[in-house]
Amino acid sequence: MAADEDPEPGPLVRMFAVTGGRARPVGEAFDVIAVVTTIGMPYDQAGLSPEHLAALRLATRPITVADIGTRLRLPLNITRVLLGDLRREGLVSIDPPAATAGVLNERIYQEVLNGLRAL
């Protein structure tokens, strides 16, 4: 590809290209460790970037926002913009992590303690 012959654009340039200059995701805010799950595949991939599609593939099994960002080598807030797009299109669900969902109960505390001891 001709583009490969160009010097690597700076990281900021790449980030802005990915989100079209947007810094905030659309819709309700979500946590950096919210759990993302792909719930649909697009009929028409026009309008979705390679990063959008990569995120959809990663989330076919539940995965956190932080891990998607790491795998795509994108900053977390850029990752969130992409995931906000996918949620708006009805392609992913984004579930709150444990504590904000109010589900940190005795059983989970105990499971965490047992898990840590067993490491």
Binding site: D31, A34, P62, S93, D95, A98, I108
Partner: peptide, 13 residues
């Protein structure tokens, strides 16, 4: 709800 989803928990420290 999907079992895998509801059984997934991420904890932040």
């Amino acid at each position: 709800m999907d079992y895998a989803r509801s059984d997934t928990l991420a904890i932040k420290i």
